[in-house]
């Protein structure tokens, strides 16, 4: 966990230091040569773009790669699971098998690969263009894309949790009383996607608390951390963008802080998308482990 934190901060922080120092240098240059202020603004803009875009696009690539891996894993494992459930007959009556999950997982993976990530890149481009040339703004378009993506993803996750809980397998769900204050805290403090995060974590928790009877708690924790690690990385990077924007706001150009803030927002949306992908992964992994466990116990 600490190593992950170090790697994220180490890669991102060095590029942010460049942003901070160059915006200060531009301040000094503007003071010395006031007649060049238009040119220095443009140069600062390009320096910031070349430095800052790269970590965000690395995260895009990472989420896309994870999505493709999970798609191939799920599609290859699911027929096997179905066949063995049919073959083993009555011993699986406690687990009800939901074919709608196949639809959901495939749909989520295709959605995030074909639609969500291109649209997110388009959002980032619109943000940059409207900051580069303030007389031609695209802010409404970028905001529209972001909010519609968020609503799409949260609707999908709501459908997913309905599929899981309506099956009736999970009767001993996580009690809402104990976790409610923490949820409220997260919801208040993480902008844009906080409530979505708590809801989806609650859905995962409901499912895996049912499954922890069959498999150990440590295995569940392992699956959780493997699935949620990319999401956490993205969230952390988004926070670092906003942190840098807050830090340089007193002395830097308004456009530079605005662009950092916008990229941070886009990364939060990407974080929501990667939650969706993590769902598919957790479901598949838990199901496989339960199946293997039951086969060995029944033998």
């Amino acid at each position: 966990m600490i190593a992950m934190l170090e790697s994220v901060i180490g890669t991102v922080l060095s590029s942010f230091i460049v942003v901070i120092i160059s915006s200060f240098m531009v301040l000094v240059l503007d003071f010395l040569f006031p007649s060049f202020s238009k040119w220095t603004r443009m140069f600062l803009f390009f320096i910031v773009l070349t430095v800052v875009i790269q970590p965000a696009f690395e995260h895009f690539q990472m989420i896309r790669g994870i999505t493709q891996t999970i798609a191939s894993m799920f599609i290859s494992i699911y027929p096997l699971l179905t066949a063995s459930i049919i073959a083993s007959g009555g011993s699986f009556s406690m687990l009800n098998f939901q074919p709608a999950m196949l639809l959901f997982a495939n749909g989520a993976v295709i959605l995030s690969d074909k639609i969500l990530i291109p649209l997110l890149s388009a959002t980032m481009l619109f943000d940059i263009l409207s900051r580069l040339n303030p007389s031609i703004p695209f802010t409404k378009m970028a905001e529209l894309l972001r909010t519609s993506l968020i609503s799409l993803v949260s609707a999908l996750v709501a459908a997913y949790s309905i599929f899981i809980t309506a099956g009736g397998t999970i009767s001993w769900a996580l009690t809402g009383v104990t976790s409610e204050p923490i949820k409220e805290l997260i919801r208040q403090n993480i902008p844009l996607i906080g409530s979505f995060m708590t809801d989806s974590l609650g859905a995962i928790g409901r499912y895996s608390s049912g499954a922890s009877v069959f498999i150990g708690a440590w295995l569940i924790i392992t699956i959780w951390s493997v699935a949620l690690l990319p999401t956490l990385k993205t969230l952390l990077t988004g926070f670092l963008y906003r942190w840098t924007a807050a830090l340089i706001e007193p002395f830097a150009n308004e456009e530079i802080t605005g662009i950092l803030d916008d990229i941070g927002k886009t990364l939060f949306v990407l974080c929501a998308v990667s939650f969706l992908v993590a769902f598919a992964f957790i479901y598949t992994a838990l199901f496989t482990v339960i199946l293997v466990k039951l086969i060995t116990v029944v033998r």
Partner: peptide, 25 residues
Amino acid sequence: MRGGLLAFLSGLLLICILSSVLSLL
């Protein structure tokens, strides 16, 4: 669909960069 989107976005990018460079000059 994706090719159309890509062409649209790259056209926007080109126009914006060209016009901002021109307004600098």
